[in-house]
Each structure stands twice: as structure tokens, then as C-alpha cells.
Nucleic acid binder design. Structure first.
Lengths: 152, 152
DNA sequence: ATGGATTCCCACCTGTTCGCTAGGGTTCCC
DNA sequence: GGGAACCCTAGCGAACAGGTGGGAATCCAT
């Protein structure tokens, strides 16, 4: 259950775009510098986001990238889906397409419940929420439990 | 956010062991056959579970594997941690060891909340729960929402 | 409008991990 | 002793993480 580097970088880049939201676009290298991301790797990720309709790009003199929609209308899940495919998958396929037999039959509902849980978090948090440091109450309630911060 | 093949296979093998829980151990190939898992690959996974103290192995004539503890006392999270390391990681490291700057600062609490959420599910479900098809109410409540089963 | 300068865009190239296979060694029971 | 099973190691193809280099397009200045 790991968040890939692509997903983490993509969300951070999107947050940077959501923050510096004035008329002028932001250069890829500026984002890479601010967030400490390999800038050539980041270019490929921004390209995916452009093809997915999340950002707009501008070439030339002082071009760069900017969000295609308002930060309130882009969820963290949207960003992850664009660069990484399905939010949560088992062995590369989405839960409803799996089939289990014997004593593992109830494993499918478990994965589905897990996915629903992850969706509740990531679909319900927008870039604006994170950038303004004001997470929804369902999320902040979890972070206030000190046990959430201990390792295993 | 993907469940690796190792983790999926490990849980299914553990469920098979929890089901056929009489005196005699279960052979790796019998498990591989019942759950349709490549049997040589499964042997490596069972080996990890042995080193992690989840199963006991018996060589020779009619040997095999059996659980080291009661199925009620092994959680799905225990199995995944043994074969795959930390339950949820970002770019390979655990959330508390990350550091974000600028508008991405609140990304850390978000990952922590996500991990806490996943723990609530996987730490709270035992092999016995899944094998008997009686998931805890917190989990079954999620699966009863039809929206949980739709793709995105 | 022409020539830089700047930026996006595209194609390879190296290491590492993930799934998976193959084969031989070791231990146990009959 | 001899099967039958576990155990260890090596390796292979694909995908992922990260780098490099060179275009192709666009803007700004002159």
C-alpha cells in the first residue's frame, strides 16, 4: 500500500500551482526548485496532468503551467488518478474485477471497504483545503489522535 | 495506492490455513492449487511468513505449513506487514519521516490521516473474521453502500 | 519581422524493484 | 535409504524511478 513518487510529486506540484494563483503561469523548474523534485521527472508528470485536463501549459518566453480549474474544484484523488490510474488497486486491477474462492471469498468485500474508505478521504479533500491548511473535519479528527503519528 | 501481489497472495494463503485448521499441516502446493497462486512464488511468501513468526513449517514426508497463532489473533495488517513492510508508505518511507515545505505543508497530516484510516480497517479485521465471512460492523457498513462498488 | 532566449515536448538510457521460474540442497518420515 | 516436502539461490522480463539530450514551439526585444 504505497503512494508512488509520481502521485506525491503531482499533488505537491498542484499545490504549488494552487498557491501561486495569479495571472502568470509557473515554470516547471520553479516548481521543481520549490518542492525539491527532479525537474525533468516533474516535466513528465506535468505532461500527464495536461493530458488529463488538470493544468494548462504555455510555451515560450515566460510561459509555464497553471491550473485548468479552481483549486476548490480539484480533489487530491483527481490528481492521483490522472498520474497513477485507479486510486486503489489489488495486483494492478480494481477490486470489483477480482474473484476469490473458498475461505478467501470475503476478501473482496474487505478490499472494497478499504477503497471506499480511501475515497472518503481523498475525494473529499480539495487542493484549496490542503493549500490553506484547513482540512475537513473528518480528516482533522483522525490527525488529532496521537496514535495516528506513531510508527507501527 | 496498490495492494501488491505478495500481500494479496499472503492473505489468501493465511485464510486457507485458517480454514483447514486441524492437526495436520497444509502443503504449499495444496494452497497454491486451491487459491490459484504460482506455487514457487508462494513458497517464498510462506518463507517470509515463517521468518515473521506467523506460520510454522514442517519438512519431510507429509509436512507443510500451519498458523503459529489462533486465526482470531492474526490481523490482515499483520500479514501484510510481514511480507511487504510498512502498511502504507509514501515514496517508500513512512509518513512521519517526511517533510514538506510551502503550500504542501498540510500534505503530511493528510497522509497521516489516510494511514490511520487504513489501519482502522486492516488492523481491526482478523483472519477468522474474513474466513467466517463475518466482517466487523465498521467494515460491513461501508460495503453496504452501492457506491462503494462502482468504478470511478 | 527576425533572431535569440525561454520553455514545453519527445525519445532514449541507467539502476532498482516486482512477479515469477528453475534447480538443486536439506530435512523429515516411513 | 529413498521419496516427499520444505528451503535457498540465481536469474529473467517487465515496470518504475530518475537522468540526459536534443528538438519544436512560442514569446520578447530590436
Amino acid at each position: 500500500m504505497r503512494i508512488s513518487a509520481r502521485a506525491d510529486y503531482a499533488v505537491r506540484a498542484a499545490l504549488q500551482l494552487a498557491h501561486a494563483r495569479d495571472g502568470r503561469p509557473l515554470k516547471a523548474e520553479a516548481i521543481a526548485d520549490a518542492q525539491d523534485i527532479p525537474h525533468k521527472f516533474l516535466e513528465g508528470i506535468l505532461n500527464d496532468m495536461r493530458r488529463g485536463g488538470l493544468v494548462l501549459s504555455q510555451r515560450g518566453g515566460n510561459g509555464g503551467y497553471r491550473l485548468a480549474k479552481a483549486p476548490e474544484e480539484i480533489s487530491v484523488a483527481d490528481v492521483i488518478r490522472v498520474v497513477d490510474g485507479p486510486l486503489v488497486s489489488v495486483r494492478g486491477v480494481r477490486p470489483p474485477e477480482l474473484s476469490y474462492t473458498g475461505p478467501a471469498e470475503s476478501l473482496l468485500p474487505l478490499w472494497v471497504a478499504l477503497r471506499a474508505n480511501v475515497r472518503q478521504i481523498l475525494d473529499g479533500v480539495s487542493l484549496a483545503d490542503v493549500a490553506s491548511a484547513e482540512l475537513p473535519s473528518r480528516v482533522s479528527a483522525l490527525t488529532e489522535d496521537p496514535a495516528s503519528w506513531t510508527n507501527p
